[in-house]
């Protein structure tokens, strides 16, 4: 590339090589700004979580995490993710299959609608379930007559989390499957493979990294969601507090160790997510 420029330069005699590279001071100035910003805004906060969590030593850290309320919050967070992620994964695969393998009327509208939950504020995502199932809601009376609690109970938290994490898997799969085309699948089918066999032997191996990527992001959000869950949960300690809500409650009680020990678990989850994400991106680039 540079040799090329050289030739052109020689020919016209006025190529400005300096115009292809930033001056030394600009280069390092910008690197300084970028690195400074990342360190200040991203590294320092991560370090601070650990610093605060361990500010009274290991003992206090473990005691805070072993509190019944903290353990209940972790369990609830796991339960919510275990219900939410598989449901949205199955949906994501079905939606991607319908959208990328067939032509039908209203396809682009459907794709837009799938992304809709991303453009709705988390608080509104919680509000709509209160409007549906709350005491004055559409189905509120029926549910309370049958003694089923949705709002201020676990089902409401699950519903709000499903809504929030709805697009993640579909969003990763649709562009990839679109790009792949369906020749390989057609070949398998025309050789007599059944639909499911084609899916498991041909489609799935091709999409597995993107699928895992979507599942990973879906899980991270499901475990970390705060706004939507906070609206429907009612903050009942030990019952409807997820781990992020436990962080809030402890922080508001000036329980620094309690808040930051739970926050450190969630920060750990975020770091694991980032590491796996980099790994999956690397894998996918090599497919």
């Amino acid at each position: 590339m540079h040799a090329n420029v050289h030739v052109i330069g020689d020919a016209t005699g006025q190529a400005n090589f300096k115009a292809l590279h930033d001056p030394f001071w600009v280069r390092w100035g910008l690197v300084g700004v970028a690195v400074g910003f990342i360190v200040l805004f991203l590294c320092v906060p991560l370090g601070l979580v650990l610093y605060q969590a361990f500010s009274k030593g290991w003992q206090a850290y473990w005691t805070a995490l072993a509190q019944p309320d903290a353990i209940a919050a972790m369990q609830l967070t796991l339960v919510v993710a275990l219900i939410t992620v598989p449901l949205n994964t199955v949906f994501g695969i079905a939606a991607a299959w319908a959208i990328t393998r067939f032509e039908f009327w209203g396809k682009s509208l459907l794709t837009t609608l799938i992304d809709l939950p991303f453009s709705v504020s988390p608080v509104i995502s919680g509000l709509i379930f209160v409007l549906m199932f709350g005491a004055q809601g559409w189905f509120g009376e029926w549910f309370s007559a049958h003694d089923i609690k949705v709002i201020f109970a676990v089902p409401g938290i699950v519903l709000a989390t499903i809504f929030i994490t709805f697009p993640f898997v579909a969003r990763e799969l649709i562009p990839l499957m679109q790009e792949m085309g369906n020749e390989e699948e057609e070949a398998a089918l025309s050789l007599g493979a059944s639909g499911w066999k084609t899916f498991f032997k041909v489609t799935l191996p091709n999409i597995k990294w993107a699928l895992l990527y979507g599942v990973l992001l879906c899980n991270a959000r499901a475990m970390g969601e705060f706004g939507a869950v906070s609206v429907v949960s009612g903050h009942i300690r030990g019952v409807t507090n997820t781990l992020p809500l436990h962080v809030e409650v402890s922080y508001n009680d000036y329980d620094v160790i309690g808040a930051f020990s739970s926050a450190s678990i969630l920060a750990g989850l975020a770091i694991v997510t980032l590491v796996l994400k980099s790994f999956l991106e690397w894998k996918q680039a090599r497919v």
Binding site: L42, V44, L48, V49, P244, L266, A267, A270, L274, S278
Partner: peptide, 27 residues
């Protein structure tokens, strides 16, 4: 350290917002 910093950019996506909130308030 470029690759490390690049991966770190996504931290605000991955970090639960409540955690980001208490950290920023504390700082």
């Amino acid at each position: 350290g470029k690759r490390f910093l690049d991966a770190l950019i996504d931290l605000p996506f991955a970090l639960p917002t409540a955690v980001a909130g208490v950290i920023l308030a504390t700082i």
